[in-house]
């Protein structure tokens, strides 16, 4: 058994999802190779080689892969993957975009978003916005899997895997990168943060998210949002936490002016400690909150910032 893990990286840096996905692959028990596809990957490859449990780091570094377009990246994976029993990617937007393409080219079904490994073919995954957990068995000869990184610990450091260059360069013919609007932030990323404070429709506008910033500064927190807050244009789309946004599991999650719809809960209910601030005592968010504060957020947020 051999596993190929497709690394998650951005701007030349490895993302924490990679070491978590390696941890999931390690639970299968197979030999693990890590594949980086992109451009300017030297530093990321060095870092990847120190992840414990990785046998080889394969690096496909080319301008053709700079934007990690699904079309040519999937073709490359298909070209390289014949000897692997398992192919893993994290269930990030990059992994979700590319992996089903890999699977279909190989004529294999995919198991999405696993949260646990039972054995080499059997996995647990949430369905229906996390209201049920399915145990599924892949009946394929080669298993194509995306991993919900928040459900796995980071694999340890201490390895020293050899780095090998992959020379195949596949051009993308019918799809081209046009532009990227990067959300600029000095804060930790949502999926990597220890503490998250999220705002919902109750925040009323984007300007009021400043009330969360002071608190986030004090706690070293990332800032998230509900779908309603994103739809209303208060904050950018990549801040959405939930079933169809980002899935997070920090030590502390503070939900402010968020009602607690099942789609939002699906993205944060595995947080260690949940705090809810809402003026409606019947808001469903209180059913999952360890500590609830029934109050007007505009009164208590400044108090909270001062008290921390």
């Amino acid at each position: 058994m051999k596993s190929l893990v497709i690394a998650e990286h951005e701007y030349g840096q490895l993302k924490p999802e990679t070491a978590k996905t390696v941890h999931a692959a390690a639970k299968v028990g197979a030999d693990i190779d890590l594949l980086l596809i992109g451009e300017g990957l030297e530093a990321a490859a060095q870092e990847a080689s120190t992840i414990s449990g990785v046998s080889r780091v394969l690096v496909a570094d080319s301008a053709e892969y700079a934007h990690q377009l699904a079309e040519n990246c999937a073709d490359l994976v298909v070209k390289l993957c014949a000897d692997y029993s398992h192919i893993f990617a994290s269930a990030t937007t990059t992994g979700k975009n590319m992996m089903p393409r890999v699977a279909a080219l190989l004529d294999k079904a995919q198991v999405s978003d696993i949260i646990d490994v039972i054995d080499a073919e059997t996995f647990k995954r949430p369905i229906y916005a996390g209201n049920a957990i399915a145990t599924v068995k892949s009946l394929e000869s080669q298993h194509i899997i995306t991993v919900r990184a928040s459900a796995f610990d980071i694999a340890e450091q201490g390895g020293s895997a050899p780095i090998e260059a992959i020379s195949d360069v596949i051009a993308s013919s019918n799809s081209a990168f046009v532009s990227k609007e990067q959300t600029e932030s000095e804060r930790p990323e949502l999926t990597a943060a220890d503490v998250i404070i999220s705002g919902g429709r109750g925040m009323q506008n984007g300007e009021n998210f400043k009330l969360l910033e002071g608190i986030a500064d004090k706690l070293g927190a990332a800032i998230g949002a509900s779908r309603a807050a994103v739809d209303a244009g208060f904050v950018p789309n990549d801040m959405q936490v939930g079933q169809t946004g980002k899935i997070v599991a920090p030590n502390l999650y503070i939900a402010v002016g968020i009602s607690g719809a099942i789609q939002h809960l699906a993205g944060m209910k595995d947080s260690k400690v949940i705090v809810a601030i809402n003026k409606d005592p019947d808001a469903p968010i209180f059913q999952v909150a360890d500590y609830g504060l029934v109050a007007d957020l505009f009164e208590v947020l400044p108090e909270l910032e001062a008290a921390l």
Partner: peptide
């Protein structure tokens, strides 16, 4: 079928917490 549904279970439920009085 390429993927077999072995079983389905309820997710672990969170214990209801407490309402605190103030900040």
């Amino acid at each position: 079928p390429r993927v077999q549904l072995v079983s389905v279970e309820e997710p672990s439920q969170r214990q209801g917490g407490v309402i605190v009085e103030d900040v």
